[in-house]
Amino acid sequence: MPAFNRSDGRDVHVYDAKDPDTVIGGLVLTSGITNANLYSMVEIICFIDGIFFLRDEYDTTIQRDDSSLHPGKYYILTAGTVTPSDEPWLVRTISAGTGTRVAAFRDAVRDRDGRCIITGEVALSGHRGLWAGFEAAHIFPLAYEQHWTNYDYSRWITVPATSGGSINSVQNGVLLRDDIHTLFDSYLISINPDDGYKVVCFQPDGKNIAGKHLDQQFLEDPRRPVDQLLRWHFRQAVLANMKGAGEPVFECDFPPGSDMVGEILSGPRAGEVMEFELFSRLAVGDKPKATGY
């Protein structure tokens, strides 16, 4: 099963100044990414012992400010040490959960949002029951419910789910256009709650959403997603796209008659992908094991 290479096309590259020949990670630069954003992203993909700052390839110190980031090589300077993060990335593929426990979640998200919260496109016929082209997306994936339980993510939930457990609270969901949902689940786009709820694209943006901010009406709704879950998703997106060579993006289009299982088993991280696919589709029983944050 072919896997997309997230590092292909990077025009921002990050190095430890003490080891300038080994790339730590990088980024495909899109609209809205600032110098301050790069600093915060570096703090996710690396453990840095002590105060640090960034310099570009022209030996210019980069300020931690809202100036637009430019393509190029960036070097971490610190009196301490720089170690690539070992924080785990949870494998995620594009599979919609099914069953009654997800239906209540879907209905709650539709009722609250009524539109794609990233593009702003309204589901004009939603009030008549027509939601074609719009999907309720879990921010934290349903397949990792055991991880959710182990790390007590439910402590952030203030609006209980009507069924299916706290992971199916409306506060763990957003309504997205179906194409945006695919990008969101692939961690190719995310929302940074610590930068004005800005949409960050990790691949070239053909939808004019990079750098947009979520609208105030959505943010003022007490049922909106909690910051901690948006922050978790953004952190996962940074790890997936920026650390090392990046994580694979898995095939999700299996035409009728194709050997889905064979393609998965011949691809990267086959066991984790197969486990995620099974539990995402069934949405019942034990969930994939995961460790970390």
Results as ranks from 00 to 15, higher is better:
187 Y>N: 04
97 G>Q: 07
259 D>W: 13
177 R>H: 10
98 T>Q: 13
32 G>N: 05
164 G>S: 12
195 D>G: 08
205 D>P: 06
25 G>E: 03
11 D>P: 10
153 Y>M: 04
259 D>E: 15
31 S>F: 11
273 V>E: 09
28 V>M: 06
277 E>C: 09
112 R>C: 00
287 K>D: 11
199 V>E: 01
91 V>H: 03
100 T>H: 06
234 F>V: 01
15 Y>T: 01
137 A>K: 04
44 I>R: 05
121 E>V: 09
200 V>E: 04
66 D>S: 15
201 C>S: 15
83 T>D: 07
111 D>F: 04
209 I>A: 08
278 L>P: 00
267 G>A: 08
258 S>N: 13
190 S>R: 00
223 R>K: 15
189 I>W: 05
67 S>M: 15
285 G>T: 07
94 I>P: 03
151 Y>N: 11
223 R>Q: 11
206 G>E: 14
273 V>T: 05
109 V>F: 00
106 R>T: 04
22 T>G: 02
50 G>E: 10
43 E>L: 10
82 V>E: 04
86 D>F: 06
212 K>M: 12
136 A>G: 01
210 A>C: 11
15 Y>M: 05
154 S>H: 08
17 A>E: 07
116 C>E: 02
249 V>L: 13
151 Y>I: 05
66 D>K: 15
38 L>V: 10
207 K>P: 09
123 A>R: 12
138 H>V: 06
178 D>M: 02
30 T>D: 02
71 P>C: 13
84 P>C: 03
33 I>G: 01
220 E>F: 11
24 I>R: 07
105 F>Q: 00
67 S>E: 14
124 L>A: 08
248 P>C: 14
277 E>I: 05
274 M>T: 08
264 I>G: 11
198 K>A: 10
144 Y>S: 01
1 M>F: 15
140 F>V: 03
201 C>E: 11
61 T>N: 05
